[in-house]
């Protein structure tokens, strides 16, 4: 077992080393689950009694979450909602959410539908400040290390679990810049968890499914952040949960 593991690790490492980091390609499917009770319990107008009531009523309600695909090839990634495998009883139209990254030219291009509009962002990728923590665990069969950063806009602590076995500095939800692929993102200790459910590395000829049209209001990330920030502040002031509409 041990020998087999080591051999496998060697194989991946050597393979990766020989082919250079840029040639790693594949598709990773992530599942995103959001814990609205935990999110709402942090809102200032919610009392302990409200939290108990929510937990009692909805705490045992298991959400299946939603699936996302991360396509990566060369230095580019594309992250979007995964297509349903089979027709379901009812189909909800998800908000447009396509994140494209080019780590060679250090560029991001996003189509994000939020608060009633589709926005188109194309600009230089901001540098994420990561702290590397002393914790390891397995995600989707890969041994991962823990890293931490902050999302100041939404006041969130982000924990990322990345693996150097996939030598690609990308990840889901637009996160990246670590010495390996991010296989799990944990926002604010479980408020939302995005974890890899399937990793396909030997996918022949991965093609990034770029949208044909990039229709949306052109905006800078900082300007969109300001709109979202204003909405979050106003909604919390109005004693409501902003994260029903804004992605947590």
């Amino acid at each position: 077992m041990q020998m087999k593991n080591i051999f496998y690790c060697f194989l991946i490492s050597i393979l990766a080393f020989n082919l250079e980091a840029q040639t790693v390609e594949g598709i990773i499917t992530y599942n995103r689950k959001t814990d609205y009770i935990s999110i709402m319990s942090k809102l200032p107008h919610i009392s302990q009694e409200d939290v108990d009531r929510m937990s009692l009523t909805w705490g045992n309600f298991n959400s299946e979450g939603s699936d996302y695909d991360l396509f990566f090839k060369g230095n580019k990634t594309l992250y979007q909602r995964a297509e349903a495998k089979v027709a379901s009883d009812y189909s909800w139209k998800p908000n447009k959410f396509i994140l494209m990254r080019d780590y060679a030219s250090n560029e991001q291009e996003d189509l994000i539908e939020t608060l009633g509009k589709v926005y188109h962002i194309k600009e230089e990728l901001p540098k994420t400040k990561w702290k590397i923590l002393n914790e390891i665990k397995e995600v989707a069969g890969f041994l991962c290390m823990k890293a931490e950063t902050r999302n100041e806009l939404k006041g969130q602590t982000i924990h990322a679990w990345f693996t150097d076995a996939i030598a690609f500095s990308g990840g889901p939800e637009g996160y990246g810049g670590l010495p390996g692929m991010i296989l799990e993102i944990d926002i604010n200790n479980g408020d939302a968890i995005i974890f890899a459910s399937e990793v396909k590395l030997e996918e022949p000829e991965v093609k990034l499914p770029y949208p044909k049209k990039l229709k949306g209001k052109k905006i800078e990330q900082s300007a969109l952040d300001a709109i979202v920030k204003k909405y979050i502040d106003e909604t919390i002031e109005g004693k409501k949960n902003p994260y029903w509409r804004v992605r947590y």
Partner: peptide
Amino acid sequence: IYATILLLEKQDSTM
């Protein structure tokens, strides 16, 4: 071979 080496700030482990 091909082990990952990270350079961190000692103060807060920033990479």
